[in-house]
Amino acid sequence: MDSGAIRRRVTTLLAVLTASGLLAVAGPAAEAMAAPSSCAGHKVRTYTFSTGSVKIYKSGNYLCAITVPKRPGARQSMMVSLQVRGFEPVVDKGRFTRHAGPVRTYAGHRKVWIKGSVGRGSYDSHGWKRF
């Protein structure tokens, strides 16, 4: 193998390593920006509370919800819950950095009860809501 071929292979290898390094750095930033839109459909309501908000999306007869903190980044206790009247709640609860959820359920024409929390702050619909 002549020195020109070696140089071309080394250059190609360096280009591939540089590109993969750039993708590794840019990947988390792009993912963080896209995370809150993880529900399908269109946003119908946002319920804010002291430490975050619960966002409700609707697609056909399905509802989807996520809880987003006001200050994302640090791992903290979060929860989101959707309960269709007459059924068990669908809940996502844990310690997250960007959002709790999405939780998705078939609502049809039934009313739903919504809950969400981030740290010590929380939202509770305190009644059934129609969407």
Rank of each mutant, 00 (worst) to 15 (best):
K58R: 13
S81W: 00
A30P: 00
R95E: 15
K93L: 10
S53C: 08
A5N: 10
A107R: 02
P89Q: 00
P102E: 02
T18M: 11
S3R: 15
L22Y: 00
R75I: 04
A24Y: 04
D124H: 05
A35H: 15
G21M: 02
K70H: 12
K43H: 10
S122P: 00
E31D: 12
R120P: 03
F87P: 00
K43T: 15
V112G: 01
G94K: 14
S59T: 14
V91S: 03
L82Y: 00
G52D: 06
F87D: 02
G108I: 06
T11L: 11
G119K: 02
E88K: 02
A65F: 03
A40H: 08
S53P: 13
T51S: 13
A19V: 04
G73C: 03
S20N: 03
K58A: 15
A30M: 12
T46K: 13
A32C: 09
T48A: 09
K93R: 15
F96M: 15
V44T: 08
A19Q: 01
G119S: 05
Y47N: 11
Y106R: 11
S20H: 01
A34K: 11
V25F: 08
A74E: 10
K111Q: 13
Y123E: 01
E88C: 00
A65K: 01
K55S: 14
A19T: 02
G86E: 04
H109K: 13
F96K: 15
A32T: 12
P36I: 04
G108S: 06
R95F: 03
R45S: 13
G101E: 02
K111N: 11
R98V: 01
A35I: 14
A30W: 12
A29D: 07
V103H: 04
S37N: 08
T48V: 09
G108W: 00
G60D: 03
Q76T: 09
P36Q: 11
S59Q: 15
A5W: 04
S122C: 06
T48R: 10
M78D: 05
S3P: 00
R98P: 07
G101C: 03
P28R: 10
M79I: 10
V84S: 01
A30F: 10
T67N: 07
K129H: 06
G4Q: 13
K129T: 05
I114V: 14
T11G: 06
G60P: 00
K43V: 15
Y62S: 13
K111P: 01
V16M: 11
T97I: 07
K93T: 06
G121K: 06
D2G: 12
V112I: 08
A100I: 07
L22C: 06
M79G: 07
S50H: 12
K111A: 13
R85G: 02
V103E: 02
R104F: 07
P69H: 05
R9E: 09
V80Y: 04
S50E: 13
V16Q: 10
K55W: 09
S20I: 04
I6K: 15
K111F: 03
G4K: 11
G41F: 05
R130P: 01
G108E: 09
R8Q: 11
E31Y: 11
G119C: 05
A74D: 07
P89W: 00
K93A: 09
T18Q: 02
A5L: 07
S53G: 12
G27I: 07
H126N: 13
M1C: 08
K55M: 13
T51C: 04
A65Q: 03
L63E: 01
Y106V: 06
E31V: 01
T12L: 09
V68Y: 09
